[in-house]
Nucleic acid binder design. Structure first.
Lengths: 115, 115
DNA sequence: TTGACTAGTAGGGAATCGCCTACCTAATGT
DNA sequence: ACATTAGGTAGGCGATTCCCTACTAGTCAA
């Protein structure tokens, strides 16, 4: 389902690194598919700049566009976010252990090259 | 537990946007706390550059340092990753619905300003 | 067909990123 | 005290980011 591997991962994390783009995802999630103008109304930014953000999101696979007359309706595509969740999985035990207060054990576990 | 709000979120996502920094997190997760030199050995990069990456991770709260003699041992701090998982939560139903093949319903749901 | 409207592209500029080579600071060991 | 080791800081440099103002390409309506 994902042949690109690390390059795709890189694009997704890079796309999420910008607050405007995360806000676009939130809008699409909360209000459903939206045309560019409707999205642009919620930002203090010119429309072409938003278009570039949408391009980044598109290339990360986080949104798709559907043409409808002269509008382009963008829709959230959450699959890459599922990949992010998969990426998080192996870290989960770390914050759980920490919450249970036994994270200090890890400090005395696997550690190389002591002086 | 997190008073900073969106600025902290921004630092975390920005920190994760770099492959070297994600690799540092993976190393700390798989091998436990490590000194800088041990980490640096795994990258084709000079040590000062890695130091800067560690600074970014530190300021995002993703690692902590403990001085031990002349070494500085870095440890994974997974709490901000728990925040990322929380951020992902509201999107979860989107990729689940899509997998069940009924994501198309969303296209005909909440949509404003038709021509 | 002409005009208006939606949205993407081109190109430019300031700021930030990510790397580098010095250099500085602190701890250790002789 | 002095040299060595570990690692952070300063400053520079090319690439990238993120915004802007034109401009271009489709689509709809008179």
């Amino acid at each position: 389902m994902n042949g690109t591997g690390t390059a795709a991962e890189d694009r997704v994390f890079a796309a999420l690194a910008n607050a405007t783009r995360r806000e676009v995802l939130r809008l699409l999630r909360e209000r459903g598919p939206q045309a560019v103008q409707a999205l642009a109304d919620h930002f203090d930014m010119r429309r072409p700049s938003l278009s570039e953000h949408l391009k980044v999101l598109r290339e990360a696979g986080l949104v798709s566009e559907r043409r409808s007359g002269r509008q382009r309706v963008y829709r959230l595509e959450a699959a890459p976010l599922a990949d992010v969740q998969d990426w998080l999985h192996p870290y989960e035990r770390f914050w759980r252990e920490r919450l249970k207060g036994l994270g200090d054990l890890l400090d005395r576990m696997p550690d190389d090259d002591q002086p």
